[in-house]
Structures are given as structure tokens and as C-alpha cells.
Simulated scan of single mutants.
Amino acid sequence: MYYATTYKSPVGTITMACDEHNLVGLWNEEQKYFGGSIAQQMTQKENMPIFDVAKKWLEAYFAGEKPVISELPLAPIGGEFRQMVWSILCEIPYGEVITYGEIAKKVAFKMKKSNMASQAIGGAVGHNPISIMIPCHRVVGSNGNLTGYAGGIQTKIKLLELEGVDVSRLFVPKKGSAI
């Protein structure tokens, strides 16, 4: 059984989902793939200890502190490839960005392959079920393109600015699915 609650944040209402002990989802309102990793209906339940932990983490994050991801009991639902990509996302330091291509190289190395398509990485990043905490907003195109955030480009910009990233060297694409 999965449980859900909401949290009012500076980037809009966030819905969180958990099993009995782990956070399994965190989505902005109207986010692409909202709840997509949860195969069954979620029951609204406010008084779950994991929600208290997650809300404290979010409060610290939005206050400009640098809460540690490893302090959270996260259990994103997804296959082995996606899990590998999400694990790499958790390694991106606060206030820094990485490209899809750089992640592709890391995944190729871990899988003992000569290369990996950036598009495959983009699919895994885009389906991240625990946004913000698993920081997919820190991934940009190799040319500084801000594409690819399921929560929307403006939310991605706000999160990067909150972390002190110089977004002036980045740009919003004229076309794209995540604008």
C-alpha cells in the first residue's frame, strides 16, 4: 500500500508518496509522469514519519541549506538501468550541474560499454520519481540547454538559482518537450 501527502513549497504544491518506511515519489503539480511509478492508488495519510522527515528536508532545502540526500530513506521504483542513473544523480553536488553526456559516460563505464546514448539517459532522468531530492534539475544539455525537466523549465531555473548556480550561462530552448 502507498500513502500520499502534499507540501506547499516555493515552487508550488508537491505531492509525496511512501510505502510504510520509504519515500517512493515526490512530484510537482502537473509534472510530467506524475505518480507514474506507482501502479496502484495512493491513500491520503498525513501522519507518516517518513513524510515528517521529508518535509524537514524540503524546508532545509528551500531555506538555502544543503541537506544531505543520504539522510533520506528513498526507494524510487524503476528498473536496474534507471536505478543506476538515479544513483548518479544523487552524486551531483549541490549548486553544480552535469550534462546528459557526462552521465552517459559514467553509465557506460559502470556497464562496461564503450558508450551510451544520451537519449537513454534523458529518458531515465525524465522519469525520476523523486524530483528535487534526487536532483534531476541539475542535469543540462552539453551546450548549456536547460531542456529535460519534467517539472517544467521555470521550476528547474528556480531550483538552480536557489542552489546558487549561475544560470546566465544556460539557456531555455526554443523548442522542446519540457518547456
Rank of each mutant, 00 (worst) to 15 (best):
R169M: 09
C136Y: 10
S168F: 04
P129A: 03
A60K: 15
E29V: 00
S37T: 06
Q154L: 05
G79P: 05
I88G: 03
A54H: 08
S114A: 13
M116P: 02
L74E: 12
K8P: 00
T43H: 10
W57C: 12
L159R: 14
G25D: 13
E96P: 01
L146S: 06
K174D: 13
G35D: 06
N47G: 05
I134W: 02
N128K: 01
L170C: 02
L160M: 07
T43A: 09
F81Q: 06
M116I: 02
I69M: 06
A117L: 11
E30M: 08
P135I: 03
L58Y: 10
V167L: 04
M111D: 05
E65Y: 11
T5I: 09
E80R: 13
Y149L: 09
K66N: 06
S131K: 04
W86K: 04
V11T: 13
G79S: 07
D52G: 11
Y61Q: 06
Q40I: 15
M16D: 06
M1P: 04
P129W: 14
E91K: 09
G123A: 05
A150D: 12
V107K: 04
G151W: 01
G164Q: 06
A150F: 07
I92R: 09
E30P: 00
T5G: 02
K56V: 15
Y94M: 08
P129K: 13
L160T: 09
E29S: 00
E96C: 05
G101L: 03
V53A: 13
K105L: 10
V97M: 00
A178E: 07
K112Y: 04
F171G: 08
C18R: 12
V167E: 03
K66P: 01
M48W: 14
A124E: 03
I132P: 08
L159C: 05
C90K: 11
L74T: 15
V53D: 14
I134L: 05
G101V: 02
P76T: 10
D19Y: 02
E46S: 03
W27S: 11
E71W: 07
D19V: 00
S114R: 11
M111T: 00
V139C: 06
E102V: 06
F51M: 10
Q31H: 01
P76L: 14
K56S: 15
A75P: 02
L162F: 08
S37N: 12
M48F: 11
S118D: 15
G25W: 13
G122P: 08
E80K: 14
N128L: 01
Y3E: 04
G176M: 12
M16K: 02
I88H: 12
P129F: 10
F62N: 03
K66H: 08
T43M: 10
P135V: 01
R169S: 12
L159P: 15
S37Q: 09
N128E: 01
E96G: 02
K113I: 00
W57V: 09
P49G: 10
K158W: 07
N22V: 00
I121G: 04
G12C: 07
S37K: 03
P73T: 12
G95C: 07
R138N: 13
K105Y: 02
A124D: 06
G95S: 03
T147P: 00
C18K: 14
D52S: 11
V140W: 01
V139H: 09
L170R: 06
I77T: 01
G126L: 07
I14T: 01
T147A: 08
N28F: 02
S168A: 09
E163M: 08
A104R: 08
G25I: 06
M133E: 10
Q40A: 13
P67R: 05
